[in-house]
């Protein structure tokens, strides 16, 4: 119970600062926000010539930031392996491991 209250207190404090921060953020949906700078301009204007993709998101995912995507697939691969290594335990080996852990 005390732990819950403590967590609540911390979260509330964080949320309060978060609200102050949100109030300071550039107003939502305005075209002159810092996010819409030369970076996105190039993606929007030149993506077709540079990558031959109609969808700019595709252009970014598969070309401009392709390495992110590569690591993303690796994340997926890692998770698959981790799932397998967790669930696929042949019975005999598992028994050994447990005994070792228990002793």
């Amino acid at each position: 119970m005390i732990k819950k209250l403590l967590v609540l207190l911390i979260v509330l404090a964080t949320a309060w600062v978060g609200l102050l921060a949100i109030a300071e953020l550039p107003p939502y949906g305005m075209p002159d926000n810092p996010v819409h700078n030369q970076v996105s301009e190039r993606y929007i204007n030149d993506a077709l010539e540079e990558t031959r993709a109609m969808n700019m998101v595709t252009a970014i995912v598969l070309d401009y930031r392709a390495y992110d995507t590569m690591f993303e697939t690796i994340v997926l691969f890692t998770a698959a392996l981790a799932v397998v290594i967790t669930l696929k335990t042949d019975k005999k080996e598992l028994g050994d491991g447990e005994e070792e852990g228990g002793r």
Binding site: Y67, D68, E72, V75, T78, A82, I85, T86, E100
Partner: peptide
């Protein structure tokens, strides 16, 4: 963002390594 994705790879493989003991 690339750092974040790398951190995720590391996190998942760390957890997988911990779980690989099988106990």
């Amino acid at each position: 963002f690339n750092t974040y994705v790398l951190v995720e790879v590391a996190t998942l493989s760390c957890c997988g390594l911990v779980s690989s003991r099988g106990t």
